[in-house]
């Protein structure tokens, strides 16, 4: 069987990569979370990091965000080495990380507030993105008044409103229910089409990764490495409703499962 997938080695300058990870190693004391990892993220596409829990997905994402320092290696964003968090990257957290004492409006505008944008200006921007993620009318609500899905929409609006080139999303849909999750996945596909940003999306769900990704990097633990890079070809431009019935979609899901199953006890 010929799989429509290509292995792409690290090749600088030939493709336009928004983010490049070069020989990253990260140890927490004796635990080696990442070892000599090299990976690139093409501009304007969504790349998933898929793998069993504990294989270093969050660690890699936080290193790209500049929140963690790698033990060795470097990360390039738009060709510049990362030394810390920057305006070119925004983060969507698995546990939302909303300020419980602040309204939806202030939470969404918080990134702009920290950048010193004037209140009226940042609230106008925040208002736009609150409507964009479907929370119009909830501007004055507090996080504890919202459902899990709505809280993550706030987290997403906050990340979108700072208008970064790269959106880093750490299992953003893992804490929401299945129906909400499917709606989110469809919305995410639309965002990738319309926002012209580079998305790096961590998930442990095979179906989710295949459904939303232009490129899937499969990470394996012990030792942590990129085992495979898959680029779905045929169904990316199809209607969102038909993707899950596409033979290529089903084949890729099966293929990934067979390579991962040995790592699941």
């Amino acid at each position: 069987m010929v799989m429509p997938q290509t292995e792409r080695a690290f090749t600088p300058d030939t493709v336009d990569d928004a983010v490049t990870v070069k020989r990253i190693t990260k140890s927490y004391g004796a635990v080696e979370a990442l070892k000599n990892m090299t990976l690139s993220f093409p501009r304007g596409e969504l790349t998933s990091l898929l793998g069993p829990s504990g294989c270093g997905k969050t660690t890699l994402l936080k290193i790209i965000a500049g929140l963690l320092e790698p033990t060795s290696g470097e990360v390039l964003v738009n060709g510049r080495a990362v030394t810390g968090p920057g305006p070119d990257r925004a983060f969507v957290f698995q546990d939302f990380a909303l300020l419980p004492w602040a309204s939806v409006m202030r939470n969404v505008a918080f990134g702009l507030e920290l950048r010193g944008v004037a209140q009226s200006e940042r609230e106008a921007i925040a208002e736009k993105y609150i409507a964009h993620v479907g929370l119009k009318g909830f501007e004055r609500a507090y996080p504890h008044e919202l459902s899990g899905g709505m809280r993550q929409r706030v987290g997403l609006a906050r990340a979108l409103s700072v208008d970064a080139d790269v959106l880093l999303m750490d299992e953003p849909f893992s804490a929401v229910d299945e129906q909400t999750r499917r709606k989110f996945q469809e919305d995410l596909l639309n965002l990738v089409k319309t926002e012209n940003k580079t998305f790096i999306f961590v998930t442990h769900s095979i179906e989710e990764a295949v459904y939303v990704s232009d490129q899937i990097a499969i990470l394996l633990p012990r030792p942590s490495r990129v085992s495979q890079i898959i680029r779905p070809q045929g169904f990316r431009d199809k209607d969102v409703d038909n993707i899950r019935r596409d033979p290529e979609y089903l084949d890729i899901v099966d293929d990934i499962w067979s390579s991962l199953r040995s790592y699941v006890e």
Binding site: A90, F93, G111, L114
Partner: peptide, 12 residues
Amino acid sequence: ANLKEMGRAFLA
């Protein structure tokens, strides 16, 4: 810790 980390991620 997640709130402090969020702050740093958004350039606090």
